[in-house]
Amino acid sequence: MADVLPRSEPGRLIVLERIPPAAWVLGVLLLAMPAFASNFVLYQIFGWSFILGMIALSLMVLAGYGGMVSLIQMTVAALAGYVVAILGTSGVPQISLGWPWWLHIPLAIVIAMLFGTLVGALAVRTEGIYTIMITLAIAAAFFYFTRQNYGIFNGYTGFNNVIPPRWFDIDWRQSVPFYYLTLACATLSYLAVVWIGRTPFGLALQGVRDNPRRMSALGFSVTAHRILAYTFASVIAAFGGILLVWQNAQVVPGTAGIPQVIDILVIAVVGGLRRPIGPFIGAFIYAILSVFSSDILHAIGMSGERFKLVVGLGFLAVVGFSPDGVLGLWDRYQARRETNRDALLGGRR
């Protein structure tokens, strides 16, 4: 856990000095990516990774900071996408209201946030497997409801042609603009989650995760902190959901089908739930495997339709070697390298 209070040594910490060199390298690399990556890689691999990473990041907030495993995050994301399609423009003009973006996008965020908060309020009184079950049940109900409701959600067909507004007269669905749009959103979400982790609210949330009984004996309302964590996570998931719908130009019941709901959990676990970077690592691995596994399968003479097999084996391999995901592998590697340093400060800078 990050230290919250400043240490008692004199000298103030300057924010830029605390950013490790690896983060600078990664940042420059990501900003320069369009110079050498193909449009397909930018749009399908990186764009998708950032979006899935954001939705998985919202799960990381709940599971990593709050100790609550929620399966509702993909549904919250899809709901935001649906609201954008319903209130904005889509290829289904008889339902879509065509409201301007400055109205329908904030409304989508707020509605998804309220929905996530409501689910949270139902789920936080349960623990462990029951939280998973209750959120999965609501996710399944949402899936079947959207599939059968034609009046609002347009049933099985959903909405096509849901595209981003033309801010600054740019077509944001072109590879390079979309890459930067998703990169910016992912970065902001990441920084927001890092920030929250070091605020009194985030510290209290982590306290609730480690020791709810003690937290209430210190005067904290455990329930209120847990529900607010759902609220915050829902906002991040909602942004991810809107980007996802823009990327595919459509939102259908299958956007938040049961497999997609589970995939978010898989992504977060594979990447690692302990730090906000984990979900993005998991999303990147997931995107690579999903996109290229059919090629790999073809190469070894199997049907490309079995790409889920490769994803599943990849998942088993990571979890088998490291229960805390890729981040866990990295941490152990770092720990071994830094054994000569102070054990308490190891790997921190």
């Binding site: 230290d3 209070l5 920030w195 009194p200 510290l203 209290a204 210190l218 904290f220 607010l228």
Partner: peptide, 27 residues
Amino acid sequence: FGGMTVADNVYLACLGVSRGRFSLLRP
């Protein structure tokens, strides 16, 4: 809270009975 420093533990205790429990500003 074994994973936190002494200062953070006591800070949490002071926070629990203050109005800043839900603050999103860093201390």
